[in-house]
Design a binder for these strands. Structure first.
Lengths: 202, 202
DNA sequence: TCAATTTCTTATCTTTTGTTAACGTTTTGA
DNA sequence: TCAAAACGTTAACAAAAGATAAGAAATTGA
């Protein structure tokens, strides 16, 4: 896949949020970059500022933390989704999260400086404010549900809900990543799966 | 406190996000309403659409869910903070969260319709897009930290961190609310407190 | 291809948390 | 003011989860 194709995919996706005139799109594309990550390469690294806001044209990434030397996965993003260590990107402070490609992954990135330049550019400012608002609102809604799941549901209930709503995650991620994503250990998830399946067999 | 005083407080706070000219503030204030909630009155109710985005001029609220008939507190907001069932407000879908005043509370509210009107008003549109973006980004950053705390920390670690950063919550909320906010039961929080204090005494 | 690594399950044991109930204290509100 | 309700702690027991290790199966990558 070449950059031109990636930009077509990007534009199609972005138009869920804002539509661009030819002139606006021309100006916009001058601020983005097309990159690739090989499997296991990092998009963001803990203790550094994440200065890009990316869009996954193809591939997938996982978010993870190193806690007492252990690798703890907290989230995933797939093709046709954005990725960034958002707080770090917005506040220009070091992130605590690694973001790693799980396969050959193609991205289109907006750097922090490019984002600021677009916000200061009369041709793009209003659309970029709106775009930034709608994207932040979208992820806010996702986070609201996720926090509620930790407060109101048991690990088993969270897994049962994932079975209904998490096709990409379930089919494409190893179980020990999913376990940490649910806030439990891999051994515990294995037991939960056994608890759920056994009554069906009997 | 009267509405005029409340508006001064509101404007001072909002100017952390955007500044208003006299004309803009004039137009803006025509879209907001000043209201009061008595103790235990609700700002939002589960299974209904939350159609306001509020600012707490004074007082405080808690967010809670009813799970199997039990009251589970998930969050708090205090004076000089916004409050809303944000996802419900943005998506116009029923919320699953109750928001209840914990004391006599004064608010300034923006209704969903007022927000849309301001976004469509040439005088205010750009500032409101920016305001909406910055507010959403701010809460996104808070949520990012909170989700990370559930993935990477034990309940005891979350409580220890709250001891360092949660003065308002610790001083103004009963312990059983704090327990559910941390994702555990009140009995469990009582034990954690005992574990933490005992080594100090010995 | 084939050894190394990763992944998942299972078992054992420990620790933590949940559940329920009781008790004393504090707060509330009529 | 005073009874009722709310609050925090503790105990006892059950359930769940964490830690560690072992082993089998699947996957990987040189």
């Amino acid at each position: 896949m070449d950059a031109a194709t990636a930009l077509i995919i990007y534009r199609t996706y972005l138009e869920r949020y804002v539509t661009f005139s030819t002139e606006e799109w021309e100006a916009f594309t001058q601020h983005v970059t097309f990159t690739k990550l090989k499997k296991k390469q990092h998009f963001a690294t803990a203790d550094t500022v994440c200065d890009k806001f990316g869009f996954l044209v193809s591939g997938s990434v996982r978010y993870y933390h190193i806690i007492n030397g252990e690798d703890i996965t907290s989230y995933f993003s797939f093709e046709q989704e954005f990725t960034s260590s958002y707080k770090s990107f917005l506040t220009r402070t070091p992130t605590i999260t690694y973001i790693q490609a799980l396969e050959e992954t193609r991205l289109i990135n907006i750097s922090y400086d490019a984002f600021q330049q677009m916000l200061a550019n009369p041709i793009l400012a209003h659309k970029m404010e709106r775009f930034g608002r709608l994207v932040a609102e979208h992820y806010l809604c996702c986070y609201e549900d996720r926090v509620a799941s930790f407060i109101t549901q048991s690990p088993e209930e969270r897994y049962l809900q994932l079975l209904q709503t998490g096709r990409d995650i379930l089919q494409r991620m190893p179980q020990h990543y999913i376990a940490h994503f649910l806030g439990i250990t891999p051994v515990s998830l294995s037991r939960i799966r056994k608890r759920i399946l056994e009554p069906v067999i009997k």
